[in-house]
């Protein structure tokens, strides 16, 4: 098996806050193989976005600090190569799409310029040639009459169209890895369907890998090959997508899947299964499992000792004392 394209090991990110040090990411390990789509799911504040920002060195520092870990991209440790080298990588080999296309596009630059910019920076193309390719790419992401709109500003486009521009910008240099942080959360459901199908089609064409960050289990089920579930800064379960939905092991994953109303399901009018309580604040240092207080199955050991990842089978593991297996695997997701 070829080595993973991206291999994050024991990543730890701290934020200095007035309330103390908040550990937003607490020992996350994850790998993305070539051509694979990995879904990173979890609720707000679980550290999924911080993980993705840390990969590209985009954590604002201060107050943030990557306090431990390695991020191998091919054979380079992204945490060690320095800002210059990272800048040469961003937008060329690793690109990112953000949730809110209005705030992540430059409001005072025409969209054609913004899409052409990566080509001018990374490929040293002259502006006219870059603009020509930008126009082609905007057609590929199905912006209607793209050539006429090169000089439009972001505010003249709808939310869905802006996200298409973002995608064009991220993909135009043919990156090996695309990190998409809640790419469709701000969009209406019919537009979300358009954008997801566009992203998956482009990904197939270019054999790119994708790290998809979302809180929406429906989006993950429809797009990912493998899924990692995060809770309070930790990955609590990792599995191939069908295993995760068919046999969720961690009580938190089970809770998430059960608490969600399903369209066309037979649960109408019945009570939804709740996960009681709320996420513990990340400034708190907890002994034992971080989910123990909300877990219906917690027992003594859960409150005393922190569970290590235990393998259910080769690709499926969970961080839970209920599933302690004789053969413990490494943390690799």
């Amino acid at each position: 098996m070829s080595p993973p394209l991206l291999d994050i090991q024991d990543l730890q990110v701290d934020f200095h806050t007035p309330e103390g040090i908040a550990r937003a990411v607490d020992g996350v390990s994850l790998a993305v193989l070539k051509g694979e789509t990995v879904g990173l799911v979890g609720e707000s504040g679980c550290g999924k976005s911080v993980t993705s920002l840390a990969i590209l060195g985009l954590i604002p520092s201060p107050p943030g600090k990557i306090s431990a870990g390695r991020t191998l991209f091919e054979d380079r440790n992204l945490l060690a190569i320095g800002p210059q080298a990272l800048r040469r990588l961003r937008g060329k080999e690793i690109s990112m799409i953000f949730q809110e296309p209005m705030t992540s596009l430059n409001p005072v630059l025409p969209i054609g310029r913004q899409v052409a910019e990566p080509l001018m920076v990374h490929r040293n193309l002259p502006r006219s040639a870059a603009m020509e390719q930008a126009a082609d790419y905007l057609e590929r992401v199905k912006i209607p009459s793209a050539r006429k709109r090169l000089n439009d500003y972001p505010h003249q486009l709808s939310g869905g169209m802006r996200q298409r521009v973002m995608i064009a910008m991220a993909m135009i240099c043919g990156p090996k890895l695309l990190i998409a942080d809640e790419p469709t959360t701000a969009l209406d459901v019919t537009i979300q369907a358009q954008i997801l199908s566009l992203m998956m089609a482009l990904k197939e064409e270019s054999r790119m890998s994708m790290l998809l960050i979302t809180h929406d289990l429906g989006v993950v089920a429809q797009t990912a090959d493998r899924v990692l579930v995060m809770y309070a800064g930790e990955v609590v379960e990792a599995a191939p997508v069908t295993d995760l939905f068919d046999h969720p092991f961690h009580p938190y994953t089970q809770g998430l899947l059960r608490s969600m109303p399903r369209l066309g399901g037979h649960d109408r009018g019945r009570r939804l299964k709740e996960i009681p309580g709320t996420v513990p604040p990340s400034t708190e240092t907890l002994v034992g499992c971080k989910f123990a207080d909300r877990c219906p199955d917690a027992f003594d050991r859960c409150r005393k000792e922190k569970p290590e990842p235990a393998g259910i089978d080769r690709d499926h593991w969970a961080r839970c004392w209920l599933f302690e297996f004789p053969k413990k695997r490494g943390v690799h997701g």
């Binding site: 459901v189 019919t190 979300q192 369907a193 997801l196 929406d216 289990l217 429906g218 989006v219 993950v220 089920a221 429809q222 990912a224 997508v241 069908t242 939905f245 899947l257 969600m260 399903r262 369209l263």
Partner: peptide
């Protein structure tokens, strides 16, 4: 169309 656009939480 609206109903069909909802991503269904089932990878199968």
């Amino acid at each position: 169309a609206l109903l069909k656009a909802v991503p269904f939480p089932d990878p199968h």
